[in-house]
């Protein structure tokens, strides 16, 4: 915990960047190309496959399957309490593979093919008095 005035007033993260991109932190937004029909991640104005600007942003259902994962013991200030971190590749039910943090599962019981769902969690925070940043991680599905 920080103590002095100088320490507590410092914001490590950019509030403005988070605010502008909050829709992408709260939802999994995909880019659907209306020309070639392919779906990609993240949301953008141009199809990465055919270059068409004729795209529509669509929301993913939030459910998917764990394709692969790694367990990271590398410690950063933001990951202080949540160690080790599990970083996975999740194949969404819409067919797109995205990188995502996996939570609520013991590293020893991880397996490829695990069904997972997007859950809102604390991503990081400017402790002790700054902003808390929320976003989606993935957890094993309950139903």
């Amino acid at each position: 915990m920080a103590g002095s005035f100088e320490e507590v007033r410092i914001m490590k993260n950019s509030i403005s960047i988070f605010w502008r991109k909050r829709s992408d932190f709260y939802k999994i937004r995909l880019t659907k190309c209306l020309e070639c029909g392919k779906v990609s991640f993240p949301s953008r104005t141009k199809c990465p496959y055919c270059g068409s600007k004729n795209v529509r942003i669509v929301e993913a259902s939030g459910k998917g399957t764990l394709v692969n994962y790694t367990v990271s013991y590398y410690r950063t200030e933001d990951s202080d309490e949540l160690q080790p971190r599990i970083i996975g590749l999740v194949k969404l039910d819409e067919g797109v593979i995205i990188p995502a943090e996996i939570v609520d599962v013991d590293p020893d019981s991880l397996r490829k093919g695990l069904r997972v769902e997007a859950v809102l969690r604390r991503l990081k925070s400017d402790d002790p008095f700054g902003l808390i940043y929320y976003g989606l991680k993935f957890s094993p599905v309950l139903k």
């Binding site: 309490e81 949540l82 939570v103 609520d104 859950v119 809102l120 969690r121 604390r122 991503l123 808390i132 929320y134 991680k137």
Partner: peptide, 13 residues
């Protein structure tokens, strides 16, 4: 609650 959960994340679910 896990370390990255709070009343906002649980209320959202």
């Amino acid at each position: 609650a896990a370390v990255d959960e709070d009343s906002i994340t649980m209320g959202w679910y």
